[in-house]
Design a binder for these strands. Structure first.
Lengths: 349, 349
DNA sequence: CTGAAAGCGCTTACAG
DNA sequence: CTGAAAGCGCTTACAG
């Protein structure tokens, strides 16, 4: 017995011209006007006629041409997603959240990467406006305020992660960094720690300063102080190692290291390990960003504050939808993070 | 002296209706037909008239509505970028390369993330086709062949990173994994190593098997053999640590560890360090992927094979342009990687 | 309930 | 060299 032939490609459904409403109308024996109404659920059509048109549409695999529709409606059902750096770890989850929300709402997303260059950004904004996007989301790569695209744009704009400097006019959805610092210390306190030091990244980053501020406040509210002023440096493992070394020398009895990023924490963990200090028994360690590649590879695995970036993207997208519908919010909206507990702060099972 | 007033927003250039060709024609005192020709550089227009029209267009900040144009032309100047996982480290650089190439060629990119779900993928393909994209790039997250979108699509498709299983019909741009393995061993040999072992990731990944194959071949061509069969495991640091431990026990005299990913290499480095084996003096270590977060944090910094993913994206985009112009290539095209040398294989400075 | 007509913003033969 | 007309694919008053 011969095996069954593989299904033939049948020369493909359609290299041919896509079916048009006129084709559908002709096949159904009605005018294009009636066909349009039937397909769009308008009430003024006899049930029988509607069915006939629908069948014709189905048979021709008819898909309304959105260009024609947009031309009439003045709306394209597209939005621009303007990112400053695609490779950024922070941009991607936000982008995913936004893409998700738009996909669900049936809007399509134009992606543009400005590569951190404001000339290129202006260029992309113009290109997007020419394409008649209904709105724009601007995704930044750090939480410091960035220049507004301005008030003169013909469509609404929502800023995500990096807030607009024009807080009166623009809407920005950003992570709550002060809250994140507070939350982190809250977790360490709950773990019974009190001799806590804070190593963090570049002092020029608002995120670094705000997390430190939140941490200090949470300590104060518990009637405690950080062991010393936050140690600012940069966002690298190397700095984590250097700072941890200093701190261990100065405060041999410290029982927790709060690190401004997972990478810094990773460096600190390596030093603790080399010095034979057990984690978390003697010293608890935690980071920020919940970057799985770092948290999961660490020994022990690293507790971290997740900024819920995907949620930020989703919220920004929804806010943009509302703005397109004429209900524009303004100001800066803070999104809370959450502590993801791993073995570096809590002895697990 | 009072400080100067801040510049007034001037109520914004245009919340108003965008200028239309009709507006331009009226202002220039010509017909829309003539205005169109003047602006589009058609020859049959008096120089004087052309200037008048151009000035009018400028004054009104006229931007031709691409929807109207596309409706006529049947082309939209848009392409779909379909990724299987936005968060994937591998997808992003490819996406950047593609976005770059399109941006330069003045096509806009619709981004869709299928989240590794084939139902969602189908859904996105349909949505993109409805929007009349001129072509599609499908970006995969591993180099194993993936199902073709099929032959019946009305627009050309190019596959990047993950090749289509329909190699006769489709065009795929993928990294040369065999060549990467060969290249890596070539570098280690050039560094004077000969007792080389290979630790790699999940055997179900074609990339793992092909890199191993390339490595073995390069050894053979040098009249050598790997110390033992490649050790397959998974792509984690933990596996790197476990495998390195085994290998050091079995081959105390090994002088190089070729690791199938940077994370595996990172794990191996940690073990070497703990055992007091100096890198690169006693043992050279290298990885694949050139993931900076890992290579730069490692002690010492890690030599790695970069797959030139951005270039893959760029080539895919250019191939798609060609295909849209009717010159479709087919088959699988391999893109070479390159060795990025750091301190784990060569004593620097 | 149905259809002829006008129009969204543009381009392109075709006459003048 | 210039413009009136037709048309891309659709929707929406407006008559019947």
């Amino acid at each position: 017995m011969k095996p069954a032939d593989p299904p033939k490609p049948a020369s493909g459904p359609t290299r041919a011209r896509a079916a048009t409403l006129t084709d559908v109308a002709r096949l159904a024996g009605v005018s294009v006007a009636t066909a349009s109404k039937a397909l769009n659920g308008r009430s003024q059509v006899r049930a029988e006629t509607r069915v006939r048109v629908q069948e014709a549409a189905e048979r021709l695999a008819f898909r309304p041409n959105p260009l024609a529709r947009s031309l009439l409606a003045g709306r394209t059902g597209t939005v621009g997603l303007l990112t400053s750096d695609l490779e950024g770890r922070f941009s991607i989850p936000i982008l995913m959240g936004a893409e998700d929300a738009f996909g669900a709402g049936r809007a399509a997303v134009f992606l543009c990467d400005a590569r951190g260059d404001s000339i290129r950004e202006q260029h992309h904004v113009q290109a997007l406006l020419e394409r008649r996007v209904d709105g724009l989301i601007v995704v930044g790569s750090r939480t410091d305020p960035r220049p507004s695209l301005g008030r003169g744009l013909p469509v609404p704009v929502v800023y995500a992660y990096a807030p607009s400097s024009d807080t009166d006019e623009d809407l920005s959805i950003v992570p709550d960094s002060v809250g994140a610092g507070r939350m982190a210390v809250g977790h360490l306190l709950a773990c019974g720690r009190s001799r806590i030091a804070h190593i963090t990244g570049d002092v020029n980053y608002l995120a670094a300063r705000e997390r430190a501020e939140g941490a200090a406040r949470a300590m104060g509210e518990a009637g405690l102080h950080l062991l010393e002023e936050p140690l600012y440096g940069n966002w690298s493992e190397g700095w984590g190692r250097a700072a941890a070394t200093m701190l261990l020398d100065r405060h041999p009895d410290l029982d927790a290291l709060l690190c401004g990023s997972d990478q810094i924490a990773r460096g600190a963990l390596d030093i603790l390990r080399e010095r034979g200090r057990t984690v978390p028994d003697e010293v608890a360690v935690m980071g920020f960003d919940n970057w799985h590649a770092v948290t999961d590879g660490a020994r022990p695995s690293l507790t971290s504050v997740d900024h819920n970036l995907q949620e930020i993207g989703r919220v920004a997208a929804q806010a943009l939808f509302q703005a397109i519908d004429g209900r524009m919010r303004r100001g800066v909206e803070l999104q809370p993070g959450r502590v993801v507990i791993r073995a570096s702060t809590v002895a697990l099972g």
